[in-house]
């Protein structure tokens, strides 16, 4: 498991710049455009400026984009054209270890993007609280969830086109509707429930709480949902990867 992770890490070291810029571009641009641009015309939300309000959620979205991207386009290349997974399965490494290694790797890439976003926040006058340290393992769990979700797609994909659907039908809606850009508390009940079913919502809420050290009442619920969805998704990823790789 660690060895599969290590293989990917070695390869990543070689292309470190390109991959970082590629994955961080979007959240940073949103922070600029929405935070500075739109934010000036929006009153404070929950006692935060608009830029402060969206910054923690954008950190979570950076994790999502990186992890999901790695586990789809990256992993699919290793699965199909390069035959890397097959080569690995000819060694004592099992499908379970391979899949978990890929999930941990996707989560690592996600976390790296998230940490860079966090580290850059002071540049935008957003000063994270000490509680933010607790956010790091949560971001890693989020990365595992999206890496596992990506591998589920990879295990069922027949070509790269497939991932365009994944991005436009799953990832982009999550980005827009998980409470990064608006306050969930002001929604009516039905809308709140709908938003609550989205996995990213809970990480965004936790990120905002921890970033500003204001731990709200529902943090336990958010934690449980994050952990449970992550576990379920990893399990599905393993099952589908086994089906895909062992004929």
């Amino acid at each position: 498991m660690f060895r599969v992770w290590m293989r990917n890490f070695r390869v990543w070291q070689k292309h470190i710049q390109a991959s970082l810029i590629g994955n961080l571009g979007q959240p940073f641009l949103f922070l600029l455009a929405m935070g500075y641009g739109l934010g000036r015309q929006i009153p404070t939300i929950e006692g935060l400026t608009y830029l402060q309000f969206i910054a923690p959620g954008l950190v979570a979205s950076a994790v999502m984009y990186s992890a999901a991207f790695e586990a789809t386009y990256g992993a699919y290349t290793r699965l199909s054209t390069q035959g890397t997974f097959e080569a690995i399965l000819m060694t004592p490494v099992s499908v379970e270890s391979l899949t978990m290694g890929e999930i941990l790797w996707g989560a690592t890439k996600g976390l790296i993007s998230g940490l860079i976003m966090l580290a850059a926040l002071p540049l935008f006058d957003v000063i994270p609280s000490y509680w933010t340290a607790l956010l790091i393992p949560i971001l890693f769990l989020e990365g595992m969830f999206f890496a596992a979700l990506g591998l589920v797609m990879t295990a069922t994909a027949t070509n790269y086109e497939f991932f365009n659907y994944f991005t436009s039908l799953i990832i982009t809606p999550l980005f827009l509707f998980s409470g990064i850009f608006f306050s969930i508390d002001t929604l009516n009940l039905k809308a709140r429930i709908a938003v609550g079913t989205l996995p990213l919502t809970h990480v965004v809420s936790l990120a905002r709480m921890l970033c500003y050290g204001k731990i709200g009442g529902q943090w336990q619920l958010h934690m449980i949902i994050t952990v449970v969805t992550c576990g379920i998704c990893c399990w599905i990823a393993v099952v589908l990867m086994r089906r895909r790789l062992i004929q």
């Binding site: 293989r7 070695r10 390069q82 060694t91």
Partner: peptide, 23 residues
């Protein structure tokens, strides 16, 4: 294997070292 599945992301020596690590 019949189908070449060397790791194109790695060099010749790294291919062997990475494979060794799996064992």
């Amino acid at each position: 294997p019949q189908m070449d599945n060397l790791d194109p992301d790695l060099s010749v020596l790294e291919n062997l070292l990475t494979y060794a690590s799996y064992f």
